[in-house]
Structure formats: C-alpha cells, structure tokens
C-alpha cells in the first residue's frame, strides 16, 4: 500500500526516463535559458538599455552559453545553490556528521574506543565485558 503511490509515479515518468539523451538535452536548454536571463539581468542592471548593453549581452552570451558552457554551466548551478542557501546546508552537514559519530570528528571502525569521562569509561568497560573481551582493571573500578 505504501509503495502504490511510488509505483504510480514511476509509471507516469517511465516513458520519459527511457529518453535519457533527450532529457539531458532539454535540461541543457533550460539551463542555458536561465543563464541567459541572469546575463541579461546583470547587464541591464549595470548598463541600462542601449546599444552597448546589447553588444555586451551578445558577447557574454556567445562565450558563456555557446562556447564555454561546459564550464559555466556547472559554475552557474553551484552559484545558484550557494545563492539559495546550499552553503548553509553544507556547513550544517559538516557540523552534524562528526556529532553523529559520537564526538569531535573521531572514531572509525566498530571497536575503536574513545575515553571522555569517567562515566563513559565505566560504560565502555561494561560493554567490553559483555562482549567477552579482557580488560585490564584500572584504579577506581
């Protein structure tokens, strides 16, 4: 029952997924249109309307959209992600991931141990005893 909506969604987009080349071609056109809108907006904002603005738009569009789009396309995507708050998301990820590991960026495999306080050390000891490993007794235990 839970997967029925996903199945309906998949059936609707399935014919589209078969044309991957057409999909990437159309999305490239859409991206080029957005890049062109940004160029036109930037030039009109700085130069106003006039023959110089049109000339600058044409030159910039030629190099960015038609000549070196394989560079500027990716740059534009990163620029828009950053503009919308993607950098904030990356910062949160790099702060949240170490906390998910249980400490300040430490820890790797399953059995590595980090001692931070007496209480956690006691829990560590009990954990290892339950797993049948020998631990050396320490003062205070």
């Amino acid at each position: 029952m839970f997967f029925l909506p996903l199945l309906l969604f998949g059936l609707q987009i399935q014919p589209s997924l078969l044309d991957i080349g057409e999909f990437f071609g159309d999305m490239t056109i859409v991206l080029k249109i957005f890049v062109m809108l940004s160029i036109i907006s930037f030039v009109l904002q700085n130069l106003g309307k006039g023959p110089l603005a049109i000339l600058v738009i044409c030159v910039m569009s030629y190099f960015i959209i038609f000549d070196y789009f394989y560079i500027f396309g990716g740059v534009y995507i990163l620029y828009m992600l950053a503009l919308l708050g993607g950098v904030h998301l990356m910062i949160d990820f790099f702060f949240a991931a170490p906390h998910a590991l249980g400490g300040g960026g430490g820890g790797g495999g399953g059995e590595e141990l980090e001692q931070r306080s007496g209480i956690e050390y006691k829990e560590q000891q009990q954990h290892l005893m339950h797993k049948g490993k020998r631990m050396m007794p320490l003062p205070g235990m």
Binding site: L89, H99, A100, G102, E114
Partner: peptide, 20 residues
C-alpha cells in the same frame, strides 16, 4: 534540509550503538 540533517544526527545518536 538543515532540520533534516540535524534530526538525522539526533536519530543516529539516540538509536545507534553508543560510541565510546
């Protein structure tokens, strides 16, 4: 997405094995 990230971190910390 930031809320989802921090929520996932909280879920992982509470539900997963304690890392010492």
């Amino acid at each position: 997405f930031s809320v989802i990230l921090w929520g996932s971190q909280a879920i992982t910390m509470f539900a997963g094995p304690k890392r010492r």
